[in-house]
Design a protein around this nucleic acid. Sequence first.
RNA 1: GGGCCCGUAGCUCAGCGGUAGAGCAUCUGACUUUUAAUCAGAGGGUCGAUGGUUCGAUCCCAUCCGGGCUCACCA
Length: 526
Amino acid sequence: MTAVRTFEKADIDAAKAWPFQEARALIKRLERVKKDGPVIFETGYGPSGPPHIGTFGEVARTTMVRRAFELMTGRPTRLISFSDDMDGMRKVPPHLPNQELLGKYLQMPLTVVPDPWGSHESFAHHNNARLRAFLDQFGFEYEFASSTECYKSGQFDETLIRVLERYDAVMEIILPTLGDERRETYSPILPISPSTGRVLYVPMLEIDAKKGEVVFEDEDGTRIRSSVCGGKVKLQWKADWAGRWFALGIDYEMAGEDLTESVKLSSRIVKALGGEPPSGFNYQLFLDEEGKKISKTKGNGITIDEWLTYASPESLSLYMFQNPKAAKKLYFDIIPKTVDEYWTHLEKYRDQEGAKALDNPVWHIHEGAPPAATPPVSFALLLTLVSAVGDAKPEVIKGFIRKYRPDASPESIAAEDAMVGYAVRYFEDFIKPKKKFRAPTDQERAGLVMLSARLKEVGDGAKEDAYQTAVFDAGKAQGFENIREWFTGLYEVVFGQSEGPRMGPFARIYGALATAKLIDDALARG
RNA sequence: GGGCCCGUAGCUCAGCGGUAGAGCAUCUGACUUUUAAUCAGAGGGUCGAUGGUUCGAUCCCAUCCGGGCUCACCA
C-alpha cells in the first residue's frame, strides 16, 4: 500500500527539509570535485560493542540525505557501512564472557580477538554480524565494509603509499594536536607486530615511499623493515578516517558532535593526501530527562531496544529526523508523543502536494514511499483504553477499536493492531505503577454496590444501553447533583484514574460480570 | 578560557528579510445517558538579551546570557 509519488523539479527545488539542504551541499561538493559515477555515502561503526541507538540514528539520517539526493539528481548512490574492525582492542569490554581469554588479546586487531561467545570467527566478526542483522531488521539498504578486509585485500595500499609520500605534511597537521609525550612517538602508520600480532604505537625509523616500506622497532626490540601493503600496517585513527575517505572516495558522511574536531582534522589530512573531504555535518548527541549527556556506563537515557519495546521503528525515525543539530532529550515520556506525531504527519501527507509533501517527515522516514494507512485512534487514546481495562489482553482492546471505529478500513485496523502491543507494554511499565486507586465515599460506595448488583442481574450479552442505563440509574439513585461527579468517582475508584471509557460499551465488550468484578475488587480494596 | 552547535507558544518542532505558525496540551460552547467521540471557537510568544545593518529582522552582523559537545590518551 505504498504509492511513490513523482515530483516536479520546481517542487524539489523548493523543498526545505534538512535532508534536501544537505543534499544541495553535497551537489555543490560534487560540482567542485567534478566527480561522476556512483555517489558514496558512509556511516561508521565500532565493533567493540553492539550497535545502538546512535548507530540507528546515523544510518537513518544518512539514508534520508541519500534519498533526497537521489530525488534531486537521479544519480546512483551507495551507502557503505564501515566497521573499524582492525582497531586494536584497547581494553576488555566489561560484561563480556571469557574475560580471561580476551585479556590475552589486548592491542590486537578486533578481527583477531576470539569471539567470546564462540559463534563467530572473531569478536569483530560477531559484532559485525550483529550490525548487519540490526540494519537488516529495519530494511536499510547498505553495503557492509570491513576495515580489516580493506587493508588485507590491498584496497588501501595505494592510500598507504600516498601517506608515506605526504608523510611530512600529514605529520605537520597532526602533531600540533597532540600532547608533548605522544608527539615524541607518534606515527600515522601503526604496524602490526609480526611477532605478537599487536597493533604497535611506535615511531617510524625510516620511511620509503618509493618501495612502500617502513622501518620500526618490534616489541622484542628487533628492527623490522616491512611493506605497508596488504594489511601489515594500519593507519592511526586521525589518519585512518581521512585515508578511508580518500581510498573509498567518500562523498558524504555525518558524525556526532563529539567528533567535530576530528572531522576538521581529517578534512585537512585528506586534502594533504590530495583528496577532498566529504560533505556532511555534526549531529548532536542525546540527553536524558535532566538534560545530561547519555552515557553507556551511566545507563541513563534509553536504549533502542527499549524504544522498540514501546513504539515502532517509524516513530524512532521521526525522532531522528527532527532537529538533528539540537541536543534532544531521549527518555520514555517522549515516546507516546512521538508516535502520535508520526501518525499525524502521515495523515497530513495524504493531502499535501509538492514541496510540502517533500518537507513532511514521513517522506524521509519511508524513503519516499509512505504507507497510506493510518490507525483509527491515537496512541494516547489507546493508552487510555488499555489503562482503563487494566491488564487487558490485546484482543479486548482491539474489540474496542473495531466497535468504536466501525468504518475503519482493514489496513487502518492493521496499523492499529501493531500499536496495541506497544500500548499494553507501555501501560504495564509506565502507567500501571503510577495508578492510584482511592477509596470511595459512602455515596459512591452505595452507588457502586448497586451498579455491581445491577450488572450481574443484567448479565453478559445485553445491549450497551442496558449497561449505560444501569450506570446512570446507580448514580441517580444516590442523588448525585452533577452526574459527572459520579462518573469521575467511578473512574477514580475502579480504574485508578480520573477519566475512562464510556461505560455502556465497555461493559458490553469487557463483559458485565467482569466489569462487576472490577467494581467488587475496588470496593474490597477501599 | 578557545572552537563548534543549539536557544521560536506549556511540550515537540516548522518558519530563516516584509504585520509570528503547526501538532499535542489547556480553556469555552454545542451535546447532557458521561470527562475515551464529534463539531465550533478561544487563550497563550517583548521569536534568550542588547546593540548594529536595513524602508523593514525571529531571520543578516557583533557582543552578552543560558544549554550541549570539544580542546591529555584512545576511538
